[in-house]
């Protein structure tokens, strides 16, 4: 193993890791927004909204994320959507993970005991009040872990932006392989950085989950 090479290139990898972190954060925020909207559509009283939510979920979970990225980045210009790679990639991945988060959030809301809603409605609280004050506070606790699983997946998913030349970790590894012919070292370095990031996020999720449980 070429330790000296690793020491020489690692600053570039750190910089790329920062891009991966940025991508992950933005994707996560977009995903949560899409997930929240999607979940409320799926749970709506109105049939067209429910239908729209269901189509969103099955469309984005039913096709490879890579294809979604390609359609937006390569296909976009054909229909007048011109986005740089970073923006197109973030949007595509965010909307994609949002479909998974839709199901996570919806599942957590549905897992709150029906008796909770009945008790609140019986007191005279409206559907909205019941959702905000009784159901969501309980569902929020239950969705922390499964959302953690989605976030783990989206971090790894940012590697899908390498083929459209976003300078993130995987792309950086590939680029250095081109000039050094040392794929083992380069991918190992990228892998370690992914692992550290994912580990740190995992700790954060655990902490949140514990905190939510105690109070």
């Amino acid at each position: 193993m070429d330790i000296e090479l690793i020491l020489r290139v690692y600053p570039f990898f750190l910089q790329a890791a920062l891009v991966t972190v940025q991508l992950s954060v933005l994707t996560c925020i977009l995903g949560l927004i899409c997930g929240a909207i999607g979940a409320f559509m799926r749970l709506s009283r109105l049939v067209p909204l429910r239908w729209f939510g269901a189509v969103y979920v099955s469309l984005f979970r039913g096709t490879p994320a890579l294809i979604q990225v390609f359609i937006l980045y390569f296909g976009g210009p054909q229909v007048g959507i011109n986005l740089d790679a970073f923006t197109a990639g973030t949007i595509a991945l965010g909307v994609n993970i949002g479909a998974y988060m839709t199901e996570t959030i919806r599942g957590a809301i549905l897992s709150v005991d029906k008796g909770q809603t009945e008790a609140a409605r019986t007191l005279g609280m409206s559907k909205g009040e019941t959702m905000r004050k009784v159901v969501l506070p309980q569902a929020a606790r239950m969705m922390i872990r499964p959302l953690g699983v989605n976030i783990n997946a989206l971090i790894k998913g940012t590697a899908l932006l390498a083929p459209i030349s976003v300078i993130e970790l995987t792309q950086t590894a590939q680029r250095f392989i081109g000039s050094t012919y040392k794929p083992f070292e380069m991918f190992l370095l990228a892998g370690i950085l992914y692992m550290l990031f994912i580990y740190a996020v995992g700790l954060g999720i655990n902490w949140l989950d514990r905190k939510a449980r105690i109070s």
Binding site: T122, L123, V134
Partner: peptide
């Protein structure tokens, strides 16, 4: 429904609120 109190077999207390919160939630809001 504000005029019709109901008590359930399985209590259905709100687990994320204290006893005080359980009792005051609806009166404060409504």
């Amino acid at each position: 429904r504000q005029d019709i109190g109901m008590v359930f077999q399985h209590f259905n207390l709100f687990p994320h609120l204290t006893v005080r919160g359980n009792i005051t939630l609806a009166p404060r809001m409504l």
